[in-house]
């Protein structure tokens, strides 16, 4: 038993070490693709960390991603980098707390509606602030952070999000969330504080999104609200998570890799029709593989038995 666990830990460590070597092996284009994949892995896994068990569809990924990116744009030149990340996480937690406490004690519809316009709301508030107070709309992001460093930071974040998912799955909170997903009334009558559990998980999941935005911001040299709060990002994350499958921790990443490559191709070939294509791909997934690739695999494996 001991050796099997040890082997598993060793395997995971080797995989992380291997992934950490990627910047030395790939060229600029390859590295930017890798950064793309790892950042979407964090976003999609964080998304399904909350939306998977609770079945609350969050449409606000980019609201938090954008908050992170903007925090970097504002503070990166004047403050130490860890402090910038800390501030980003703090703002993300604050916003997620407000959203969670006001909607998550009600049924899922309210949450969906609130998150539908959240990115637009934050975008307009940032725009309003920049226009009225700082009198600039865009900002230049000057840091000495290299692409490889961005990749490594994202990799650490990815390891953390998987670790968080793994630990939650084995904890009382994980049991509570699965019970809520099955039947919230029963869960509440079994002593589960459903609102608290949902808010806690929502906040945790959005911290990862906010940090991803903060870490990714130096990739762009110029940021304005339209870039940072682009709704296509929320949509992309949703599709990737659903394609992979949200009921397993490793599900979303199975959707991220193929779709990140496909979108890279579509964006290059059909830059003006990108959102139509993505929309069609998404509708196809909702109809054809509602339980994702993981669900599909599990179904086919189970059937012959």
């Amino acid at each position: 038993m001991m050796t099997q666990d040890a082997l598993r830990v060793l395997g995971v460590a080797a995989a992380i070490a291997g992934l950490a070597c990627v910047p030395f092996l790939l060229g600029d284009y390859g590295l930017s693709l890798a950064i793309n994949i790892v950042s979407y892995t964090v976003l999609a896994t964080a998304w399904s960390l909350f939306s998977g068990p609770t079945r609350y569809v969050s449409l606000a990924t980019v609201a938090f991603f954008g908050i992170g990116a903007y925090t970097t744009a504002v503070f990166a030149e004047t403050l130490a980098w860890p402090l910038v990340l800390l501030i980003a996480a703090g703002i993300g937690i604050l916003v997620a707390g407000i959203v969670g406490l006001s909607t998550l004690r009600l049924s899922g519809v309210y949450f969906v509606i609130f998150t539908l316009g959240l990115a637009e709301l934050v975008r307009q508030l940032v725009t309003w602030y920049e226009v009225n107070k700082t009198r600039t709309l865009g900002r230049y992001v000057f840091t000495d952070i290299t692409a490889a460093q961005i990749y490594w930071q994202l990799l650490i974040l990815a390891v953390l999000v998987f670790a968080a998912g793994f630990l939650i799955g084995r904890s009382r909170l994980g049991l509570a969330l699965r019970a809520i997903g099955d039947d919230e009334t029963v869960a509440r009558h079994s002593g589960i504080d459903a609102t608290q559990a949902k808010v806690a998980l929502f906040v945790l999941s959005t911290v990862f999104m906010t940090l991803t935005g903060a870490i990714m911001a130096p990739r762009w040299t110029y940021i304005d609200p339209a870039i940072a709060f682009n709704p296509v990002i929320s949509f992309t994350v949703l599709i990737m998570a659903l394609l992979g499958g949200v009921h397993r921790l490793y599900g979303p990443v199975m959707g991220v890799v193929p779709l990140a490559l496909l979108f890279e191709f579509l964006l290059a070939r059909f830059p003006n029709h990108f959102s139509i294509m993505v929309g069609l791909v998404f509708i196809l997934i909702v109809y054809a593989i509602p339980r994702g690739i993981v669900g599909l695999v599990e179904q086919t494996v189970r059937r012959p038995a």
């Binding site: 509570a176 699965r178 997903g181």
Partner: peptide, 18 residues
């Protein structure tokens, strides 16, 4: 109203845990 995706054991465990 059993918790449908839980085994019988985990249904009971939920009550114990909370």
């Amino acid at each position: 109203r059993p918790l449908a995706s839980f085994t019988c054991h985990d249904n009971v465990l939920t009550g114990l845990a909370f």
